[in-house]
Amino acid sequence: MLVYLKIYRYNPEAGRNVPSFDTYNIEAEPTDRVLDLLEHIKGEIDGTISFRRSCAHGVCGSDAMRINGRNLLACKALVKDVGNEITVEPILGLPVLKDMIVDMEPFFDSYKSIMPFLVNEDVPADGKERRQSPEQRERFDDTTKCILCAACTTSCPVFWADDQYVGPAAMVNAHRFIFDSRDQAADKRLEILADHGGAFRCRTAFNCTEACPREIHVTQAIAEVKNAITSGGVEY
């Protein structure tokens, strides 16, 4: 099938300091990934088009882009699902550096701010694993799936407007530890998220949940964090 592809271009170094679009008509299979189309154009037509990618099957989180106005991973967006008129743009709310490449540092800084690591120095005397029931493990299963692609955070209208807001992805990762029965720092994380840039900035727009390529119930995770703050803690 013939696909009409519009690709966002921005590269001040090469004189393209006003964002614009390049357009292409190319032959594609319905099962082609948008990433395949970008690779084809970069390889055959214009090698200057720049974007990040690695695993090409939705697990490394490199290639979140705005495709027809929605945040998707280019490697999980199939032509048959997005249609034969395709517009590819960088994700919103992070500074664009070149074409689809944005500055990810603010995103990772937010992630790091919520103490994204298990806090528990107690180890069983026999040196073996800490016990955790399947039910306790299930409680935070959903939020362990996060690949830090930033699709959720950069779909959030609050994040676009407020650069103090940690954003959905940081909250998802806070949830992953707050609701882990082994963790001992839930209080500290809840304190961080009770602050100005934290959970109560969320206006439940649900954009994040729709954007998540891992189908994490992001808005629900944020709601659970809010509840934990209001109720003063978590019971495991």
Binding site: E129, S133, R137, D141, F177, R182, D183
Partner: peptide, 22 residues
């Protein structure tokens, strides 16, 4: 066995058996 336990101690969320083991 030692490194798998070490990963668990670092926080790795292994799936669990009914008795809570990995």
């Amino acid at each position: 066995p030692e490194v798998v336990y070490e990963l668990e101690h670092m926080g790795l969320p292994f799936s669990r058996n009914p008795d809570g083991t990995i």
